[in-house]
Design a protein around this nucleic acid. Structure first.
Lengths: 181, 181
DNA sequence: TGAGTCATGTAAGTTGTTACATGATTAC
DNA sequence: GTAATCATGTAACAACTTACATGACTCA
């Protein structure tokens, strides 16, 4: 059900196509949720059936037709009802790299360090991109009326990646000390 | 497939029952993976069919029978093959609270702060428990030969929760400043 | 010449969740 | 008496992933 509310939340700010929603997931929602485009299209269909959204198809000359979704009053009401009255579920993390880390004692130390270096690169890139995005969208910490949430979660993303990087450095140190002995 | 390797990794350290594996998930694996007991039992059955594990049933007088699983050579070989040669998947996060945070502009500021205070409590508790667990299992940063992974991931858990708490405090400040104006 | 963007989806398969079931024992 | 622990599972359903499909256009 949560994917549905993530989509309603985005639509409550701006009308959008399934494609655009998928892009927004990659840009901003990625800090706390993941979804494939196939999932998004399916959920949009279901929501329209239930009257939470409304769509109009727009013909385009050069590009394929697109379907623009808007949120309905019923959709917005249900979004608020969820936000205010539904219990908060526990977070669910699935991290493939950390799973490997938990078994580092089975592989050579150099190989383990390799994994961590790759992960550092990955998070360094993510950190740079998110920082740039935040500076462009919220210069000097200023945010628009309906942007508060995005501002807060983007800051979470930055801190999360910084904390990842610092942990990576710490773990590499531990492994190097172990390699010496 | 990753759940399978998480289980093989635990079994490579010690034989265990499905119940014990579920407990270990709650204690240590929780920092990077989640799974219900129903999923764990199902995966254990599949793994035995494929010869990756082997089980023996032990009768108990007072408690129900239990099935103790051990990893086979084939299982260990497959675990190493995965660790060393399979690409690392991107992490997947589903955080219900952050999803709500992303829509904080729709609800009253006091209510939003409330959510963050609850989350602080939750992470504070988790932090304390993990710290205590780490001190008991790795006093002064000393770890056994096959405990390296657990040591590294428990430290990740601690840093993760600390970073959560500091973000919560920051976000509450932002909201209070907004409430004043 | 191949990769990427725009734009939407179907179908099949794998995971993950929820509710239910058993039944004795121990702790508050 | 109510809940929790020990220990294992089935069944039904919901969510998620992967592979495939279309087809014009742009950029290196």
């Amino acid at each position: 059900m949560a994917l549905r509310y993530a989509l309603l939340g985005l639509l409550a700010k701006n009308e959008a196509t399934g494609y655009e929603l998928t892009q927004q997931f990659k840009e901003t929602v990625i800090h706390f949720w993941t979804a494939h485009h196939t999932q998004i299209y399916r959920e949009l269909l279901k929501m329209e059936e239930e009257g939470l959204t409304h769509s109009k198809t727009v013909q385009q000359s050069d590009y394929p037709d697109k379907k623009i979704y808007t949120i309905t009053d019923k959709g917005f009401a249900q979004l608020l009802e969820w936000m205010l009255n539904k219990p908060v579920n526990v977070p669910k993390l699935k991290d493939d790299l950390l799973l490997r880390v938990s078994m580092f004692h089975f592989i050579p130390t150099e190989r383990a360090i390799d994994f961590l270096e790759k992960s550092k690169e990955h998070h360094q890139m993510g950190l740079m991109m998110t920082k740039k995005w935040q500076e462009e969208n919220f210069p000097k910490g200023t945010y628009g009326e309906n942007e508060l949430g995005e501002y807060l979660t983007s800051e979470f993303g930055i801190r999360y990646m910084e904390s990842w990087l610092s942990w990576c450095n710490w773990a590499i140190k531990v492994l190097k000390k172990k390699g010496e002995s």
